[in-house]
Design a protein around this nucleic acid. Structure first.
Lengths: 210, 210
DNA sequence: GCAATTCGAGACTAGATGATACATAAGTAA
DNA sequence: TTACTTATGTATCATCTAGTCTCGAATTGC
């Protein structure tokens, strides 16, 4: 009776691969954003499935987008997870997050840029709540960068006089700027060199005798 | 016969203020971006003018957007003009551009963020050329920042060993990140403090004996 | 006064949008 | 076999989209 990962259940089996369909939706939303991506495009990218199949599988465009964001965070959005890894030295946590973001966003196997930053940047008033889904993610990364700086001040690595927000904002604003740079053609090498430059800001704030 | 600025011409006079209508369109495109802004919204913001009046005055949505971009650059987009002012010391040119951008974008009298960076960030494939209008402006600012760094290297202010792209990209990426930060609630004070921090990168690359 | 010109109100077009209804197909459980 | 469950194909929905057309109104030049 064991059928591996497939959970036996009643009813006619689905004829398309839901996971592959979801991944196709990730690519579309990533490339175009929420509103410009139409149901027709989505259904087509899922193998020309019917509207009935689409709504049965995903509920609505908005519900699909929420799933897409979760999937994106799982597969691609781990670039900033170092920010939340307390076992890493704070400076390394920040540099790793920036580096991995730059590398991921410039990979040629998927759309350039970042779904979390650009996915709903153009919205009609009635869809503003869609951007809220992404905004909370951006806020989390921003806060995590701040906490890395705070940790370094607390540990004595950075000077007690450090203005936490004034030092963390250049890193977060740079992070939010990467997607636009990448979409406009910035290469991985350019970004990595820029990150190396940027990280010297951190070193400038080190406690004199550390 | 002199009628001031009004050019006498035949035909029934327009009943709405074209300039005010254009400014209303600037605000809409700025807040929502190109595609989500509908003709209905535009006409409504122009005083409930008819479609006939709209098309007679502006030609099409795309033609209006091009006028809107030109108007935006005129009124709000001068924040980065210092980058092209050869009479300014390069460091001051860069710092001024960042500072003025941060101040402008956080003004509460208009939508937050920047039309040039966010105005067409979500586009269907058939409207990709709309973002090209904005992309060329972003490229111009990026190049201007690079030239400021180059000028400073040439003048001896910055070390000959300076990697121009590695030093200019943190500034441009920060600039491209400001709109997202502002939309997410960053204050002018936070951004100005971040800019002060960021500019120390420049000083780090100064020629030792200068 | 009259022609030429321009504008405005509103009806209208074709096509796209996200989403639903309904009958049928294909599987499981008893 | 029968009941139940779920998926699919097709037709369709109301609404919105950018854009046109017709026709009457308001102005200027002569």
């Amino acid at each position: 009776m064991l059928k591996g990962k497939i959970v036996a259940r009643t009813g006619r089996p689905r004829e398309f691969d839901r996971q592959k369909a979801l991944d196709a939706a990730v690519m579309l939303f990533w490339a175009q954003g929420y509103e410009p991506t139409s149901l027709n495009q989505l259904k087509e990218s899922m193998g020309n499935i019917s509207p009935a199949s689409f709504y049965a599988a995903f509920g609505s465009k908005e519900a699909l987008f929420r799933e897409v964001v979760a999937r994106y965070l799982d597969v691609y959005g781990q670039t900033t997870s170092s920010l939340r890894d307390r076992s890493l030295p704070p400076r390394e946590a920040v540099e790793t997050a920036l580096t991995r973001s730059a590398c991921m966003q410039t990979e040629p196997v998927h759309p350039p840029g970042c779904l979390i930053v650009m996915g709903a940047s153009n919205c009609t008033p009635q869809n503003r709540h869609i951007d809220e889904i992404l905004r909370s993610q951006r806020a989390a990364d921003r806060k995590a960068i701040e906490e890395c700086v705070s940790r370094a001040v607390a540990s004595g690595e950075l000077s007690q006089a450090t203005n936490v927000k004034a030092l963390s904002t250049p890193f977060s604003s740079f992070l939010m700027g990467i997607p636009t740079e990448v979409r406009d053609g910035a290469t991985k090498e350019t970004l990595l060199a820029a990150i190396a430059t940027l990280m010297t800001l951190w070193d400038l704030h080190k406690r004199p005798n550390s």
